[in-house]
Design a protein around this nucleic acid. Sequence first.
DNA 1: TTTACATATTCCTATATAGGAATCTATAGT
DNA 2: ACTATAGATTCCTATATAGGAATATGTAAA
Lengths: 111, 111
Amino acid sequence: MARAATSSDIFNAVAEEQRRTILDFLAADERSVGEIVEALECAQPSVSKHLKVLRDVGLVRVRRDGRRMLYRTNAVALKPLHHWARTFEQYWHQQLDRVKERAERKEEKKK
Amino acid sequence: MARAATSSDIFNAVAEEQRRTILDFLAADERSVGEIVEALECAQPSVSKHLKVLRDVGLVRVRRDGRRMLYRTNAVALKPLHHWARTFEQYWHQQLDRVKERAERKEEKKK
DNA sequence: TTTACATATTCCTATATAGGAATCTATAGT
DNA sequence: ACTATAGATTCCTATATAGGAATATGTAAA
């Protein structure tokens, strides 16, 4: 079997760096495709394809304005990613604590 | 060009669901490959391959115990993912606020 | 040193890109 | 009705899987 489709879920969709950059760029305000192309210095068809993937998984919303399409990040759709990463917070605190302890024991020995 | 390698960064590595499940499973305690195979109901070679990807990006650590290999999640390596997702927190709060406002305006009209 | 057990690696195949080029579609202006 | 502009879609290709089967490697026990 091949890798899961990029548009099968948000994890696969944001695996591509350009798509993360697009989400960053569209987070605060809506922007046209042309503005994204200029900001990313990326070919227009590539941007359109990335936007389709992001649309398919609900990470961006679109509305038409004349002949331009205005895209905007749908931040809420990133919650599952944030939530998953967050479940590991407790463990990395533990890890840092262990590092600290070791450093402190070393200090003790010096004395 | 094809998709970036799964082992090119943590975002690509965790795009695969099985690999996320493995990270969940190895978060609290170290486990042998056999235990992972049993827990995931996944073929042993597949698990070994997933573990290699996770090792390559630093998401798991290994140590040998006799003829078993004990793996454990290196939670700290997930921080960049958490941090990136977190930058959108402010935006989804704004979104939820807008939804709330709309609901409240509706309530007002009813009266 | 055989034998058994635990993992890792190799080989194979179907599939899904990402990017570039070319083309199609839709809307606005004249 | 034309023409120009903004985006979307299609076609093409090199590349990287994920999973299954078979095999190799490494360690422990008899």
